[in-house]
Design a protein around this nucleic acid. Structure first.
Lengths: 266, 266
DNA sequence: CGACCTTTTGATAGTAGTCAAATGAAGTGG
DNA sequence: CCACTTCATTTGACTACTATCAAAAGGTCG
């Protein structure tokens, strides 16, 4: 059952000949190319930073706090492996998961404006994080424009990402939001060259619910309904491992809102 | 007036002497200082950009599209006056107001990552916008580190802002979200040295609702309830002009959820 | 094994969405 | 200048989605 056969080692020509099938097939090829591309870009970016900045490498384990809201800003962090959640704290004590970070993502941009981090960043798994002094980075980027380009792209992506989150929360009903969360996670893995048919959630239902703006019970019910609809399956291991037989089916469900099956046909 | 001296010429001692008044009074003084400071920083930033980049000045009127999702990225825009809404469009046609921009705010950061803008930016009023070619900006910022610092601060602020929006949508009930929207707008005006006791909404109820993730009817009811509670008043002119007698009362309501008055006492 | 946390599921309540109608505001053309 | 059209806003009645409360089952770790 470990055939990650989302057509991995795939022959483009074989597909090129089957032009009859439009839509699904050709789309999947384009997607894979884009993902390989993205994966390569992330590797290149990491290599460039590693070479030109010799960042300090930190090993973290689940629960470790990488940077803390209120602490003085001096470093940006680059995630080389592992998973990190970003938690924003309001003045009146509300707590909100505002982002999830994967390999190649940067942490700490929020600290630049006020010289203090405004969020906590907490590891959700063991991983390696590179600490890069901001002043060092600025200095180096004057000599190496590519570094500066990298930095700006990362910040730009973060802005776009945050907006997507807002759109998801504002426009989708609860079940679709849960589906979109799984799709987002699967996409993030795919962009990093990892298998996406099975994903291991590193968050409790409560944390997912917080991130999605709903209660833990609603998350649980949402997952149950998605499973009942055949859009996901739970691995035998435990309910934190989720199988996604067909990410496109999830996408269709998110768009269709209430029409899981019919949407598959068009 | 290109004094880029952020740490304004303010005398901390003057404020330090009024220790007797605690709570409201001292807080208001601190706030005003912060706002004057912010206002000055914005003016300084605009002056620096104007001096070192000679940006192209564009006049816009309500409804004008400043940049369009999908269009090729080449410019960042700096808002010198007026009000702008940022609209994100999903692949399946959902439309979402994801941000509001005021004097001193930048537009177009979302285009850096993919060389295409991912959002529409639409003027909500007459205003002046400065177009700055990104390549020109990069080049100039290599010679003038202050420019680069400005840019990064603006991007950092945008990231923090987006996260605050997400937190608001995820953690606050509808009425508090409406209140938070008004507070946000008032704060934005205050930071720019404008009066905040009366604000003119430049959006329909439908647009506000879209931004806040609720229907236009809920916005309308929320405003009515806030008015009934005495937290806001409608100007005679029309229901788009809103008086906020006491912004702190709004803040208390947002925090207290349901306890508008009591929260003021602590 | 027992203590503790997470997850699921059911029953019920409450908030916000939907549908609908009336009022208000604004602009158009006679 | 005033009907007339159109759009924005308010408010009510009803529905539906999601939150809350509660109990039981599943997992984890000492």
């Amino acid at each position: 059952m470990m055939n990650s056969s989302s057509p991995i080692a795939f022959n483009p020509q074989a597909a090129a000949n089957t032009v009859v099938l439009h839509g699904q097939a050709t789309r999947r090829i384009a997607e894979q190319r884009a993902q390989l591309n993205a994966s390569q870009q992330i590797a290149d970016a990491l290599a460039l930073v590693s070479d030109s900045l010799a960042p300090q490498r930190l090993m973290v384990r689940a629960g470790d706090v990488i940077c803390q809201a209120g602490a003085r800003f001096d470093c940006l962090y680059l995630l080389n492996s592992g998973f990190v959640k970003i938690i924003s704290l309001s003045s009146d004590g509300r707590e909100q998961v505002v982002g999830l970070k994967f390999r190649g993502d940067w942490l700490g941009f929020d600290g630049i404006a006020n010289q203090r981090y405004s969020c906590d960043a907490v590891a959700m798994d063991t991983g390696e994080i590179w600490a890069i002094r901001y002043d060092t980075l600025l200095e180096a980027s004057l000599r190496r424009p590519a570094l500066l380009g990298l930095l700006h792209q990362a910040m730009s992506r973060e802005i776009s990402n945050d907006r997507d989150s807002l759109m998801s929360v504002c426009t989708l009903p609860a079940d679709a939001r849960v589906a979109d969360f799984l799709r987002y996670w699967a996409d993030a893995l795919a962009k990093r060259g990892l298998r996406t048919d099975q994903i291991k959630l590193r968050m409790t239902r409560a944390e997912i619910g917080n991130y999605l703006g709903m209660t833990l019970e609603t998350v649980s019910r949402g997952l149950s309904r998605l499973a009942k609809a055949g859009l996901i399956e739970f691995a035998e291991g435990g309910r934190r491992d989720i199988l996604i037989p067909e990410v496109d089916a999830l996408r269709a469900f998110i768009q269709g809102g209430t029409a899981p099956a019919p949407a598959l046909l068009q």
